[in-house]
Simulated scan of single mutants.
Amino acid sequence: MVGSIFRLEIRRDEPFDDTRICVVRMKLCGDDNNDLKELYDHIKNEDERREETNRMTLNTAIWRMDKFDLAEKYFRRCLSELPSNDPLLSELYQRLGLVADSKGEYDSSLEW
């Protein structure tokens, strides 16, 4: 899940047939169970538009994974849900243009 915090325990095993193996254990931390709680709380409270920002970040990650159709679907959903004077609209139009460009739809990209 985006924003999850894990504690990592890394252990190196002895070399085996000229190969060194590392074992990594990941333990999911709860909201109150990590050293970064103060920083996390600050970031969480810093932006009133956190939910929209997170969705834009997630949609952008989907686009960067070359899942263009899925990214476009989610960006369009955000577009339909935001009010017409929302400050995120300019960024959203830009991302839709980038998705169209990635799909080779250059005319559509220019329109966005």
Rank of each mutant, 00 (worst) to 15 (best):
Cys78Pro: 00
Ser80Cys: 12
Phe16Arg: 13
Glu48Pro: 11
Arg64Glu: 15
Val23Tyr: 10
Leu82Gly: 01
Asn34Arg: 07
Lys37Ile: 09
Leu92Ile: 03
Asp32Met: 05
Leu39Ala: 13
Asn54Ile: 04
Lys37Asp: 06
Asp66His: 12
Tyr93Arg: 05
Val23Pro: 01
Cys22Asp: 14
His42Val: 14
Met26Ser: 14
Phe16Leu: 13
Asn54Asp: 04
Arg95Met: 06
Leu88His: 04
Arg25Met: 08
Asp13Asn: 15
Leu8Ser: 08
Thr53Val: 15
Tyr93His: 05
Thr57Asn: 12
Ile62Lys: 02
Lys44Gln: 11
Arg77Cys: 02
Leu92Pro: 00
Leu82Gln: 04
Asn59Ala: 14
Glu48Ser: 13
Arg12Asp: 09
Gln94Trp: 14
Lys27Phe: 15
Lys73Tyr: 09
Val23Ser: 08
Asn85Gln: 12
Pro87Glu: 05
Asp35Lys: 04
Glu14Ser: 06
Lys73Asp: 10
Asn33Met: 06
Arg7Ile: 06
Arg50Val: 07
Asp69Lys: 05
Asn59Val: 09
Arg7Asp: 06
Asp47Cys: 12
Cys22Gln: 15
Leu36Tyr: 11
Leu96Pro: 00
Leu88Lys: 09
Arg12Gln: 13
Asp86Gln: 07
Lys37Glu: 09
Tyr93Trp: 10
Arg77Phe: 04
Phe16Ala: 12
Leu28Asp: 02
Glu48Arg: 15
Phe16Pro: 00
Leu70Tyr: 07
Arg7Val: 09
Ile43Ala: 11
Asp18Asn: 07
Asp32Ser: 13
Asp17Trp: 09
Glu91Ala: 12
Phe68Val: 03
Asp66Ser: 14
Glu52Gln: 08
Ile10Cys: 03
Asp13Ala: 12
Leu28Trp: 07
Asn45Gly: 14
Gly30Tyr: 03
Glu38Trp: 03
Asp69Phe: 04
Tyr40Glu: 10
Val23Met: 07
Glu51Asp: 15
Pro83Trp: 02
Ile21Cys: 07
Leu28Ile: 02
Glu38Lys: 08
Tyr93Lys: 02
Glu38Leu: 08
Leu96Arg: 00
Ala71Pro: 00
Glu9Gln: 13
Cys78Ile: 08
Arg12His: 08
Arg76Phe: 03
Met56Asn: 02
Asp41Asn: 08
Ile62Gly: 00
Met65Lys: 13
Ile43Gly: 04
Asp31Phe: 10
Ile21Gln: 12
Ile62Tyr: 01
Val23Ala: 08
Glu81Lys: 10
Arg50His: 05
Asp69Ala: 09
Asp66Cys: 07
Arg20Lys: 08
Asp47Gln: 14
Asp18Tyr: 01
Ile43Tyr: 07
Lys27His: 14
Arg25His: 12
Arg25Pro: 01
Arg49Asn: 13
Asp13Lys: 11
Phe75Lys: 00
Asp31Glu: 13
Val23Asp: 07
Tyr40Trp: 14
Ile21His: 10
Ile10Tyr: 01
Glu38Val: 11
Tyr74Thr: 01
Met65Gly: 05
Trp63His: 09
Leu88Asn: 04
Arg55Ser: 02
Ser84Trp: 10
Leu8Cys: 05
Lys67Ile: 01
Glu38Met: 08
Leu89Val: 05
Gln94Tyr: 15
Arg7Asn: 13
Leu82Asn: 02
Asp35Asn: 03
Thr53Lys: 09
Glu14Asn: 05
Ser84Ala: 11
Asp31Thr: 06
Glu14Trp: 06
Asp35Tyr: 06
Arg95Ser: 06
Glu72Asp: 13
Arg20His: 06
Gln94Pro: 00
Phe68Ser: 02
Asp86Glu: 13
Ile10Pro: 00
Asp13Cys: 08
Glu81Pro: 01
Met56Glu: 03
Ala71Met: 01
